[in-house]
């Protein structure tokens, strides 16, 4: 849990921190839209370069962003491999015959098992995973012997490779942009920004202020609830619940022994909290003044204009070319 960087604010002092949260949310949406509009790999790479530029100017360490990307690595690689293997369009770039025999398949299984056991000890897991894929490919293409019962082909088509690369870059851009938002914006400011942006939803009977209040209280109580869950776990552990072991049936009881107290305590807590809020003159849906107000500055306008320019340019590029 501790290594999840998505959604975690890291204090800092660059211009990104001083932007209005509304600006950052809107710019994120606009630029994400632009990333989806682009259909040329070169343009997308320019986009990536721009994003990296923002990271550098905004003094956000690229390592942080990489940590944010890490949980998504599997998705990225999966998309890449899937596209490369199964997209059969465009000219052939590379072709290799694969030989399936009991021996090669056995070796492949061994490789996977070996990888599964050793990956824990390897620092660069991603590279290690790719290495495994290459090893499998090498086994299947290089070992030819009489027991071969079937041959197949490993073909890389240009479109597949191109699309795979394209999707990957697009994903990286989008995730990096979102990470910039969450790293540089306090959850409370983010919430306030969202509330302001969602205000027009009043027309469809969604009260942005109430939604924001719910989010704000959730933010306030998440640490409390985690702490509580931990204590309940300890309390049940002291009654002999071994959370690390147990058959399925025991596991069910273990989870019930956690969830029931959790539910009952939360219910009581929300009841008391509602009382406390009401007693302090809170009336849902009533207008309130606010301690925190957002201030729109020149920088904010510049960023929005800049983002819009990028979106318009990408649309133009797509329509005209």
């Amino acid at each position: 849990m501790k290594n999840v960087v998505i959604g975690r604010y890291i204090p800092g002092h660059s211009f990104l921190y001083h932007l209005d949260p509304r600006t950052k949310i809107m710019a994120l949406l606009i630029l994400m839209a632009a990333a989806f509009v682009v259909d040329d790999i070169m343009h997308l790479l320019i986009g990536l370069a721009l994003v990296i530029g923002v990271l550098l100017i905004g003094k956000i360490s690229i390592k942080r962003v990489y940590l944010g990307l890490r949980p998504l690595m599997f998705l990225l690689i999966f998309t890449f491999v899937f596209q490369v293997l199964f997209n059969r369009q465009g000219p052939v770039l590379y072709e290799e015959t694969l030989y399936y025999s009991p021996i090669t398949i056995g070796l492949v299984v061994l490789t996977v098992v070996f990888w599964g056991f050793t990956k824990k000890f390897i620092r660069f897991r991603l590279l290690y995973f790719l290495l495994m894929l290459f090893t499998i490919l090498a086994i299947l293409s290089l070992i030819q012997e009489p027991l071969t019962f079937r041959t197949g082909a490993f073909v890389v088509h240009e479109d597949g490779l191109r699309l795979a690369f394209f999707i990957m870059v697009r994903l990286i851009i989008i995730v990096t942009l979102s990470t910039i938002l969450t790293i540089t914006t306090k959850p409370t400011d983010l919430n306030l920004g969202l509330e302001q942006i969602l205000k027009p939803l009043k027309l469809v009977r969604i009260n942005a202020e109430e939604v924001a209040m719910i989010i704000s209280i959730s933010l306030r109580y998440i640490p409390t609830l985690l702490d509580e869950a931990n204590k309940i776990m300890l309390a049940q552990a002291s009654r002999g619940v071994d959370f690390e072991e147990g058959k399925l049936k025991e596991k069910v009881v273990q989870i019930v022994s956690l969830l029931v107290p959790m539910f009952i305590i939360s219910f009581k807590r929300s009841d008391e909290l509602a009382n406390a809020m009401e007693a302090r003159s809170f009336v849902p849906g009533q207008p309130r003044t606010r301690l925190h107000v957002l201030k729109w500055k020149l920088n904010d306008s510049i960023i929005i204009v800049f983002s819009l320019t990028i979106l318009i340019t990408t649309i133009m590029a797509r329509v005209l070319i």
């Binding site: 209280i217 406390a276 302090r280 003159s281 009336v283 003044t289 301690l291």
Partner: peptide
């Protein structure tokens, strides 16, 4: 169960916001 704000300042502000006190 009665600390509504995310910080001390926000919590004290909560009741005042409800009363629509000027900022």
């Amino acid at each position: 169960n009665q600390f509504v704000g995310v910080t001390v300042r926000d919590d004290i502000a909560f009741g005042l916001e409800n009363l629509q006190i000027e900022r």
